[in-house]
Amino acid sequence: MEGKIQKLLVASSLLMGAAVALIPLTSYATDGPYPTNGDKYAPGYECNKQGTCANGEGSTVVYVNVDDILSLDAVAFSGTNGDTAIQVMPNMPREGSLQATVRSAKPYTISLSAENPYLVNQADDIYVIPSRANVSNDSTAWGIKKIGETLNPDDVYSAITTNPEVFFEGGPHDESTTTEFPVGVSVTANVPQGTYATDVTVTAAVKE
């Protein structure tokens, strides 16, 4: 028995040693330091809050101007069959998407809201599809998914309300960044046929 345990101990130690040897220990190598926007300093460089950086006294001065801009390109598209409408059959939830492209020099949020959070029948406005988190086979609902592990860890739909709610948080980027929000709709057989629609407000704002 003692011999068996001794062998197991040696084998386990060797196995662990080999596994540890294979773990990359230098994955923390990072870039920089480099000059950056804001009142941050790096060797040889000095940057002010306008993002203007100068390297060294008396040397050739290099200026980098980062405008405090915020831009938004928001479109609803890609329903079904290349259309901008989402074609839904009873008890068969379908998904379209809403695309928002933002360029921001600072961290930003994208919030969504709707003056009327119901998809309204365009022929007869007494028929509506309410916004709910529960978009499923046996429900009449529509919702939009928040994007990001923190905002939507369970990958579920969120109801749209009249108050703007954050659906995405992004970091500063020189280039435009596109975020696609899945839009889910489900109806039961009780919902009259027709075209249903509503206005969704997409609000981009910096988050300092």
């Binding site: 609803a76 329903g79 969704v200 981009a204």
Partner: peptide, 17 residues
């Protein structure tokens, strides 16, 4: 930016704080 034929008609807003 609101497409009249879309299920979701988007109104775009940018906030200057």
């Amino acid at each position: 930016s609101a497409d009249e034929n879309a299920t979701v008609r988007v109104v775009s807003q940018v906030a200057g704080l």
